[in-house]
């Protein structure tokens, strides 16, 4: 992607993503860009204002319909549900407009009808943000050297390594997460190696391990795609100008790899924020994340409006995060793109 005014726009150049969070990013980011013309708007403005012919207009129609049906409609339904009440026996929704579900996110209603502040849901959000951030940092720390190392191999080896990174995608995430249950449980190989069971499974640590494991390829691939384009003759030039190895990494390699790193952060942080498989299976349901909360409301708790309200809150959080990255990208003068 080359348009400097619309950072973080996966949807403009890629086919509509099937993940609702990504789809939302696609519909939101162009809007934010258009309302705030950037300083580097010369090329972008020219592109936006180029008179669109009849052909151009009809060619965007299928994509628009696709987005409306698969992203817009579900979104409208979720938002609508969040402003209704529980249906009969908790199945579905019913009743008139109500903000009760949103109020419940922040307040607990006492028996006498008075409302007091309730930090439990906020706690779940906080826990999710914290775990997602931890996952992102761990992935970035692991992926950066890995991707730079990959990029310095011969073209043949590089192709093999990229292939190797994608191998986990061949197996369902659920199955791979169960594999971690086997690895981490008290009779598993980790405890076996340590000689004594130390209760790794069903801890936030296990959740984080699972999240990092699942997310790592999504960090490695975009960072690698930036690192692969890096001209290593620049590193030689820096070396020649008196820079030591660490300085070269920090001042020459890192700025070049930064767009990939930002893309990777988005690709890891946002899905991790809504993860429910890993906290459920590896965290033992003890460390609740937003995803688990939503799943519970639509499942066991049978409170669809509350589940919808949590989902909307997650969407808003995601949006704010994306906007934050877009802003940071603009300030850095970097073109941020996903892959």
């Amino acid at each position: 992607m080359t348009d400097p005014v619309t950072p973080l726009t996966p949807g403009t150049a890629q086919p509509p993503a099937d993940d609702p969070a990504d789809g939302l990013a696609a519909s939101a980011a162009p809007g934010t860009a258009r309302t705030r013309p950037g300083r580097a708007s010369s090329s972008g403005a020219r592109r936006v204002h180029r008179p669109a012919g009849q052909g151009a207009r009809s060619s965007v129609l299928p994509g628009t319909l696709f987005l409306l049906a698969l992203v817009g409609a579900p979104l409208v339904i979720v938002v609508a549900y969040s402003f209704m009440s529980r249906g009969m026996f908790g199945v579905g929704v019913a009743g008139p407009f109500s903000v009760d579900s949103y109020v419940r996110l922040l307040f607990d209603t006492q028996l006498d009808g008075s409302k007091i502040f309730d930090p439990r849901y906020i706690g779940v959000f906080w826990q999710s943000i914290w775990l997602a951030a931890l996952t992102t940092v761990c992935c970035a720390v692991l992926a950066f050297p890995m991707a730079v190392w990959m990029a310095t191999r011969s073209p043949r080896t590089r192709a093999l390594l990229v292939f190797a990174v994608t191998i986990p995608f061949w197996t369902n995430t659920l199955v791979r997460t169960y594999a971690w249950v086997l690895i981490l449980n008290d009779n598993g190989p980790v405890s076996g190696l340590l000689g004594t069971p130390i209760g790794l499974l069903y801890t936030p640590f296990a959740t984080a391990v699972g999240l990092v494991y699942v997310s790592l390829p999504f960090m490695i691939l975009p960072v690698y795609s930036s690192a692969e384009k890096f001209d290593f003759r620049l590193a030689e030039a820096a070396y020649d100008l008196g820079a030591r190895r660490l300085t070269i990494l920090r001042r020459v390699v890192y700025p070049a790899v930064r767009p990939g790193l930002v893309a990777g952060v988005v690709l890891v942080f946002i899905p991790s924020l809504g993860a429910f498989l890993q906290p459920q299976l590896l965290g033992g349901g003890k460390s609740l994340m937003i995803g688990n909360l939503i799943e519970q409301q639509f499942g066991a708790s049978r409170n669809w409006p509350l589940g919808s309200a949590v989902a909307v809150a997650l969407l808003v959080l995601t949006l704010l995060t994306l906007m934050g990255f877009a802003l940071a990208g603009r300030r850095g003068g970097q073109k941020v793109s996903l892959m």
Binding site: D231, R233, L234, E236, A237, A238, D240, V252, P255, A256
Partner: peptide, 12 residues
């Protein structure tokens, strides 16, 4: 110091 054939200027 060296002047490289590719110039190797830092693009950022």
């Amino acid at each position: 110091n060296t002047v490289f054939q590719s110039y190797a200027l830092f693009p950022h």
